[in-house]
Design a protein around this nucleic acid. Structure first.
Lengths: 222, 222
DNA sequence: TAGATTGTTAATCGATTAACAATC
DNA sequence: TAGATTGTTAATCGATTAACAATC
């Protein structure tokens, strides 16, 4: 029995990028598109684009390229954007509020069903149109509503405890925005967003450029 | 002349993780720590931990490990957390407000000096204690204050235009939260945060698990 | 000393990129 | 047809992991 190799993480992350471009192209009424053309617009290697698209199951025609409508449909299908999954968000602070309100996750296959918090001042009210429930109710509600995604936007110190409650509620995938690695059962899927790591990398690279400038004496005179 | 190899991106992203753990360890009064111990607590390979730490320039002692204080100091030094860099944030919406207020970036070497927006209703007011300025003033202010970091939290459609203004202002590093790839001069450092890509990956993996469950018939009965 | 841990070199692994025949 | 593009296999590249002598 052949074990189907999982689709590479980088590919999964690029698919929404293609989707966005394709929607624009679709809006212009263009029917076909080639990998070199996509690669050119997105600054990606054409071969890489082709491999990524093939992961979704589409096939193209030499000389012509791929059918735009088909590509859009396949990506949506492949990423499960058609059957929306429900999520619970824990931590109704600034970041939590931003995720609740700003992002149009519904288009991307996820709907945040409710928010949770321990702060009595927040519980019971509604935030960006979503009810804020007391945290201790999460496990029971997650089981009852069969919610499988948990979003953590609490301070680092509280993250592990929240994650434990999510697991107790049968949640299978956790999107963790707290700067804290979680200890979880093997089968749980975790994505650590880790903004500090991202910032660290950006700032270290910048440090290098600035020192280079200082050394060669080319200041901010552009 | 030997060209010093740049530190791998994944290493840079892990350094804040070590730092956080080390601060905890430091708080407990522990003086030394070994790579196997760090790896154990962070679920990372000990050799990887050693390589990462070596990138910052520290050396350890066999059998004993590394001096905690020295590690903390070296990481902070290496990531440039000691001399704080100033940043401008553009897009005073939900996410922008969250980044302005929630995150304690100051501890991590970055301070957001001001926010910008095109919305007259937002301009002139202050948000989370920071002034919101009209966008068109960004280039001149960035040059005058020698701000080198730009944070983009505007809708995708406006992102490129904002990026162009940043470049005009001499900004060297862009932290982009808009789901839009930017066309920039070669020397500009960009980090795309791309939450949709992250979500896509999470949800596709979950899809796989759910289908597996459906196939083998083990429902949510834990 | 014995044994854990470092520093370093080699092997593995996975993703990106290059090469090229097949095809429309 | 000629030539661009696909599909696929091979080469490259970089990061992770393994192996092992040096050392405290």
């Amino acid at each position: 029995m052949e074990t189907t190799r999982p689709v590479p993480e980088p590919t999964l992350r690029r698919l929404p990028l293609y989707h966005r471009l394709l929607k624009v192209v679709q809006g212009k009424g263009q029917e076909h598109i080639s990998c070199p053309s996509i690669g050119d617009q997105l600054k990606l290697d054409p071969t890489q684009v082709r491999k990524d698209l093939q992961a979704t199951g589409v096939t193209g025609r030499p000389k012509v390229g791929f059918v735009v409508d088909e590509l859009v449909e396949n990506i949506e299908q492949f990423l499960g954007w058609n059957n929306t999954k429900e999520a619970f968000l824990v931590g109704a602070g600034n970041l939590g509020a931003a995720l609740l309100g700003y992002m149009k996750f519904e288009q991307y296959g996820m709907s945040i069903a409710a928010a949770f918090d321990v702060d009595p001042a927040k519980v019971g009210r509604s935030l960006r149109g979503k009810q804020v429930m007391p945290l201790h109710k999460l496990p029971a509600m997650a089981r009852r509503l069969r919610v499988h995604i948990g979003i953590i936007t609490v301070p680092a110190a509280a993250a592990q405890q929240v994650a434990d409650l999510m697991v107790e509620g049968g949640i299978l995938a956790i999107w963790n925005f707290a700067p804290q690695r979680l200890r979880l059962p093997e089968h749980i899927i975790v994505h650590n967003e880790d903004l500090y790591g991202s910032l660290a990398s950006l700032s270290q690279r910048l440090e290098g450029v600035l020192q280079e400038q200082a050394r060669t004496g080319q200041g901010s005179a552009a």
